[in-house]
Amino acid sequence: MDDSAEAGFRDFATTSAAGLRRFAYLLCGDWHLAEDLTQTTLLKIYRSWRKLRHDEAIAHYVRRTLLRTWLDEKRKPWRRRESGHDVVPEVADGTLDPAARAERLWARTVVQRGLLEVPPKQRAVLVLRYFDELSVAETAAVLGCSEGNVKSQTARGLAALARIVDRLEPGKGLKIA
């Protein structure tokens, strides 16, 4: 790879690594695995960097690569025996009101725990739509499916997440919409 392509990839990796890691965490629920998935995805992108079109479609390609890397990781037989149910430490945010922070922290924890129980395809759609704030069309492009499929998976995923959250924290009344 020539120096300009190398510099272009370095800039791309620097600007997108944090977002990719967050996306990976929302899929898998484990910061260490999210870091591994991000690194593996960036390695795959690096290998094909010269062949890629460098336009707005590259973001969809990178997300799709990360999603497939995660799905491949889930399919590994040794992975099925492990479960990551450790509590992720939260970083304190002094700018929030303590009462509001406690409620927000509760909602965040419950939703993250609930996301881990939603089926993988529905989880991917929910993360892309509501955490990465992609449109239905953009989500369909990333997943390589129809917009109708994205809409149905979103509805099913939200319904499943609502049932799971209600089971995890009955009577709290968390609204998911």
Rank of each mutant, 00 (worst) to 15 (best):
S152T: 15
R108A: 12
A107E: 12
L115A: 06
E73S: 09
P120S: 10
A99H: 08
G8P: 11
R79W: 13
R68T: 15
Q39P: 04
K121G: 03
P89V: 09
V91G: 04
R64L: 03
T14G: 00
P170T: 13
E82G: 06
T109S: 11
W78T: 11
S135Q: 13
V136T: 14
E169K: 13
R156I: 06
L105P: 02
A137P: 03
A59M: 14
F23L: 15
A92N: 09
S83Y: 14
L161M: 02
R104P: 08
V127E: 01
A159K: 15
Y46K: 10
K74G: 04
H60S: 14
H32G: 10
V110S: 00
V125D: 03
K51H: 03
A17M: 12
F23R: 03
W78I: 15
E117N: 00
E6H: 13
A57P: 11
R108Q: 14
K76S: 02
G114W: 00
A100E: 12
R108T: 15
S83I: 13
K121D: 02
V110E: 03
L105I: 15
D93R: 09
L128N: 05
A5Q: 11
N149P: 04
I58P: 02
G114C: 01
Q112C: 09
F131Q: 00
V118W: 00
L126G: 04
V87H: 15
